[in-house]
Design a binder for these strands. Structure first.
Length: 596
RNA sequence: GCCCCCUUCGUCUAGAGGCCUAGGACGCCAGGUUCUCAUCCUGGUAACACGGGUUCAAAUCCCGUAGGGGGUACCA
């Protein structure tokens, strides 16, 4: 026996793609509400669109939710402890809960029963209109300034004999629900009462010609049969809610509490959509292709890499052809995986839109959840930084806002940086290693023996306080991974020029002077090297900065590195000495002075 | 077109008639600490969309205008 007072919420995505970041927030809110009240949270897959739904998408949605730290009491699930487990293509999808299924495509017999009930009571009827006829009706209605395009009179006046005859002919039909002729009020827990007049209410399709229920019908039946008490969803569903309420009345169902939450947009006000990713990848792709003599070869590469098992983007259902890539570059399709592959090959960042994008970009689930929760909800007071446990204890519908929000990556980045800084050292190290691998950039493995290699420990320690994402160290520390001969010294850079060549090459003089000092450090360690340098500075009556900055430039080619001791530690004595020598050669001043 | 929703610093927001000379966070600017960067600390910048009401008193209530968003599918 279920407790009738307990709150039951659900998250019901369509497995037609990735888990959109907005969907993640909806899931988070529903999860938090259920947890806050000791209720139940259900995951249900709305896969009534047979053409666009896929199992692979289901798997990724499940994995993404689990990665975020969201758990559910009923619905499909994948067992395991890590993202790798959840993303294994052959990991079994298990079912939790008493329902026959939590996939709408497997609940057809349930819908059938209620459809029959509606058909028998006359609250629904078969409609044999062709899509063309309906289009004409819509145009006519618009021309006449009427809100309702569909005139049910003709369909409803069909006799059962006529219907039987049409069915015998094999004429396709849909089932429409007969909307009541009274106004319907949505009692929204966030927006308040919203009343829609009957003149705006149109008979709508509940069974498609392919025999599948529409979203509107399935959602109402499922929410009722699953005992859902609170429906929290995006505001784009508000206008559809009267349909659902009417259906509930006709079926004798209770009405759940509705709470429509504000939408999330890009900073420029546009929708956050996968097209943003396609646009960015296309721009980069076109730019690159322009510089290529042999375009075919490059496209072949993209396709081959896209299929390579070694690549994280490779997914069976995402295989694409060379023609697809060409079409993509021409703007004829927006395939996410082609965008991903192009970006990967070119090393360009794509805007994060889906949950997995944020993961691949090095965001921590904790920071993401925290930021997401603040988009449309806040705990009041000046509290802004909190964890899942806090949400579990404090989330409430009352504090959900009404207005749409713009997604501010700067603020997310700030949250992420704080979260990274607070991570225990070893946790950060392992996450850093993992993300690098997930993102298909396993090149840490080329320089370090593993996440527990002492040099990688030093590397992680160097970058933990200065990483906004787990991907930052790859870029900030790129100089570590270069061959000495690939390091360049840009003397047109004011700082570099000044540090090395000012006062008749003072910086270079320092570099030359510290070579024997560093050479003598044995055994090599960052701390020992720095101590030697400090001692040297003292004898020369110099500040450490006067030595550190030329050295920093010599060993990195840049003016920014982690603290000297860590940098020297990671690089190692031989590389340091080699780079100093290289710098002295490469930074020879021009024959005539730059400063007249 | 029609219907519905929304409107406080650049952004996310606090604010439920006097506590508001409007608070916090991110960003930005300035200063301090520091071997660079980042961190950290200090200070600063910046908003009640507009116009009418109601009231002793309005960011808070009402009406209108403008702007933004959503819906109007055999997609969810």
């Amino acid at each position: 026996m279920t407790d009738r007072s307990a709150i039951v919420t659900r998250f019901a995505p369509s497995p037609t793609g990735e888990l959109h970041i907005g969907g993640a927030r909806t899931a988070l809110f529903n999860w938090a509400l259920a947890r806050r009240h000791g209720g139940k949270f259900i995951l249900r897959l709305e896969d009534t669109d047979r053409a666009r739904s896929s199992e692979a998408s289901t798997r990724r949605i499940i994995a993404d939710l689990k990665w975020l730290g969201i758990d559910w009491d009923e619905g499909p699930d994948i067992e395991g402890d890590s993202l790798e487990d959840w993303l294994k293509p052959d990991a079994p999808i298990v079912k939790r809960g008493d329902q026959e299924s939590y996939f709408q495509s497997e609940r057809l017999d349930i819908y059938r029963r209620y459809i029959d009930q509606l058909l028998e009571s006359g609250r629904a009827y078969k409609c044999f209109k062709t899509p063309e006829e309906l289009d004409a009706m819509r145009q006519a209605a618009r021309a006449a300034g009427k809100a309702i395009a569909y005139d049910p009179a003709e369909s409803r006046s069909l006799t059962s004999a006529q219907i039987a005859a049409l069915e015998a002919q094999g004429r396709p039909y849909v089932v429409r629900f007969a909307m009541p002729d009274h106004a319907i009020t949505v009692r929204d827990a966030v927006l308040g009462d919203v009343t829609v007049e009957p003149s705006q209410l149109e008979d709508f399709v509940i069974v498609k010609a392919d025999g599948f229920p529409t979203f509107h019908f399935a959602v109402v039946v499922d929410d009722s049969t699953m005992g859902v008490t609170h429906v929290m969803r995006g505001q784009e569903h508000l206008a559809n809610t009267p349909k659902h309420i009417a259906l509930q009345e006709a079926l004798g169902f209770d009405h759940p509490v509705y709470a429509h939450i504000p939408l999330i947009f890009n900073p420029d006000g546009s929708k956050m959509s996968k097209r943003d990713k396609a646009k960015a990848a296309r721009a980069a792709g076109r730019e690159h292709v322009r510089s290529l003599a042999e375009v075919d070869g490059w496209i072949e590469d993209v396709v081959r890499d896209g299929r390579s098992d070694a690549n994280y983007m490779a997914r069976p259902e995402s295989a694409f052809s060379e023609a697809d890539v060409r079409a993509f570059l021409d703007g004829k399709n927006d395939h996410t995986h082609i965008a991903g592959m192009i970006a990967f090959k070119l090393g360009v960042p794509l805007p994060e839109i889906d949950t997995a994008d944020f993961r691949d970009s090095g965001y921590l689930p904790h920071a993401l959840n925290n930021y997401l929760a603040l988009l449309g909800w806040n705990p009041g007071g000046d509290v802004e930084r909190f964890d899942m446990e806090f949400l579990r204890q404090n989330f409430s519908i009352e504090r959900i806002g009404k207005s749409n929000a713009k997604f501010d990556r700067e603020k997310l980045l700030a949250f992420n940086q704080e979260a990274i800084a607070k991570l225990p050292e070893s946790e950060f190290r392992h996450q850093l290693w993992n993300v690098n691998t997930w993102a298909g950039r396993s090149w840490y493995a080329r320089y370090f023996d593993g996440p527990d290699d002492p040099l990688f420990i030093a590397f992680a320690r160097a970058y933990q306080p200065r990483s906004r994402t787990l991907r930052d160290p790859e870029h900030l520390g790129a100089f570590f991974f270069k061959k000495t001969e690939d390091i360049t010294y840009d003397l047109s850079d004011k700082n570099i020029h000044k540090t090395l060549l000012k006062n008749d090459g003072e910086g270079k003089g320092v570099l030359d002077a510290i070579r024997p000092i560093l050479k003598a450090v044995d055994p090599w360690s960052g701390a020992a090297a720095q101590a030697a340098l400090e001692k040297f500075a003292e004898t020369r009556n110099l500040k450490l900065g006067a030595i550190a900055q030329p050295l920093r430039i010599a060993i990195s080619g840049t003016t920014v590195t982690p603290p000297l001791d860590l940098t020297l530690e990671i690089l190692g004595g031989p590389a340091v000495l080699h780079r100093i020598q290289w710098c002295l050669i490469q930074s020879s001043p021009p024959t005539h002075s730059l400063n007249p």
